[in-house]
Every structure is written in structure tokens, then in C-alpha cells.
Amino acid sequence: MQVLTFFLGPERFAIDIKLVDTLENKMPITPVPKSKTYITGLISHRGDVIPVINTCLILSEDSIDNLLEKLIIINLESGKIALAVSGIDDVLDIEEENIETVNLNEDMSVVNIDTHIIPLLTYKQLKKI
């Protein structure tokens, strides 16, 4: 499978490329008062209004300052969402055998890329949003 790797601060994460619609540079975001804490705001993308998600918060990481450098637009059944990340790294081919599921509190998967263990953001986690 192919994964897109991205940064949240210094940490590297991966996501299945099949979930990714497009990548966008940072753009003006409209905050939504009284919305859930992980919603950074709304953007206009090709005529659609898309919520921007604070990716740190859904991955249970500490929030970081320079999060909004890039946006990964994801297609979900309920509509599109944009994941705010601090940088895009690469698109990599990985063998299925290098993916391991770690049963912590949630269904967390990790991929082993050149002996680096990278958390893999799965559809299950995104669907919970």
C-alpha cells in the first residue's frame, strides 16, 4: 500500500493515500464558536465548505503552534474534512507485513519504515470525528 507521511511538529505520521483527496497550502480559516475543541474552523475549498481538524487533538498529541502550514483534504462518507498538519513529507510504498496493529486504548496502527516506527492514521480513527 501507499502512504502519505506528514509532520506534526517534529513527529512523523502516516495516512493511507487512498483516503487523501488533495493537499492544500494554508489558507484563511473561519473559527466556529461553541464547536468541538478539535475543530479549528471552516475553509472554502472548490465551492465546498470543509471543517479543518486539529490533527494533534485527534491523535491525542499535545497541540503545537505551527500546525496550520498544510492541509490534507480527506474524503469521508459524511463529507470532506481537512487535517491541519505542520508539513508534508513523502509518499511511500510499504509492504502490508510492515503494518502492525497496536491495541492500546484505540485501534492504533503503526508502520515500520526503515526501522522507524510511525503511527498510521486509520479510517477507523477518522470516522470517529
Partner: peptide
Amino acid sequence: KNKPPIIKDVNEIKGTTI
């Protein structure tokens, strides 16, 4: 435009406009 489902619980907002 209708508000995205993710913010449907924000009653003070009817929708969005560009």
C-alpha cells in the same frame, strides 16, 4: 449553504456563506 454535519450542534449558526 447548510452547515457541515460536524458543527450541527452549534444552534446559533444557521449555515455558512462564501
